[in-house]
Design a protein around this nucleic acid. Structure first.
Lengths: 154, 154
DNA sequence: CCGACTCGGTTGCTTGATGCAACCCAGTGT
DNA sequence: ACACTGGGTTGCATCAAGCAACCGAGTCGG
């Protein structure tokens, strides 16, 4: 997105998109959720321009979606973590994941599978564990590589 | 978003965002879901530039998310409708709506409320009817103006 | 028969975000 | 002394978005 505001829109969807609707923002959140926490990791994993990654991270920190913490001193090096607000984007990501799986399917199968950490059950498009029925969140779900990834890695 | 592809990304979230992650796309889908079906209605409601609206509608049609139908001849006039694929974006929109309501709250209350057409129950962030427990879809949910809209309309 | 209005766009121009490559800096390893 | 790593910043070219003007078919009012 170019400008991050939708002038005149009084709608919570528009307000959400003002914050996370910019190009790359949701993919950064997804990557951090999957354990990519460092600048270079994110840059390589996403293939994003470094200046743009820098700007996005700053924006996500300003919006209290990410938090930057030093993991060592001299030289100081940083990691990015999701706040509660950031973790709460999980249901939206799951909905987009499922929509993508349904309508842009990989012939090999989905590239990423989500399951319930405690019981191993699959997750529905509503973020509900299909085997135990619990409504899941970022903390008790886990991403595992699916069959669609295999073809891309070779 | 500028370019609509995320090169090298093998991920259904990225694939979804390639299609609906461009600036305005999800808001157009939301508007059509709420009954704005004509070019001028959409243009006024969104405050989007006409050339951009034209490009987005064409893209959404190409992606089989919208369908254009003539509602009269001479002069021919058109309306845009959501396909099943478009309607299935509903859970993602609901997730974003709830996230926006929670973290960018309007002091007056939410500008838009969603309820279950049949029983009038409120809808959770997972798109589940809070009163009867049913998992809802675009067709059996309804958007109604909430308290947050009042202040903006005056 | 002439002008104004509506709907659904398209065309041109300007502005601003993005992509890319190069550079920077502190510290570490060899 | 030199290269390497992590975490960026700077400059420049390109491409998409915003804006206003225009267009074309048909309809209405006088």
């Amino acid at each position: 997105m170019l400008r991050n505001d939708y002038p005149g829109q009084v709608c919570s969807i528009a307000r959400s998109l003002e914050v996370v609707g910019e190009r790359w923002s949701l993919l950064i959140v997804r990557d951090v959720m999957n354990g990519n926490r460092r600048f270079d990791e994110l840059q390589k994993s996403l293939g994003i321009a470094r200046n743009v990654l820098s700007a996005r991270l700053q924006r996500l920190i300003d919006e209290d979606i990410l938090e930057r913490r030093a993991y060592q001193e001299s030289p100081t090096r940083y990691e990015y973590f999701l706040t509660e607000k950031g973790l709460d984007l999980w249901p939206a990501l799951i909905a987009l994941l499922n929509w993508g799986d349904r309508y842009s399917p990989d012939p090999q199968g989905p590239p990423m599978l989500i399951d319930h950490k405690e019981c191993g059950g699959a997750v529905s498009d509503r973020g509900i564990c299909k085997s135990c029925g619990q409504a899941l969140h970022a903390r008790n779900a886990r991403a595992i590589p699916g069959p669609g990834l295999a073809g891309a890695v070779e």
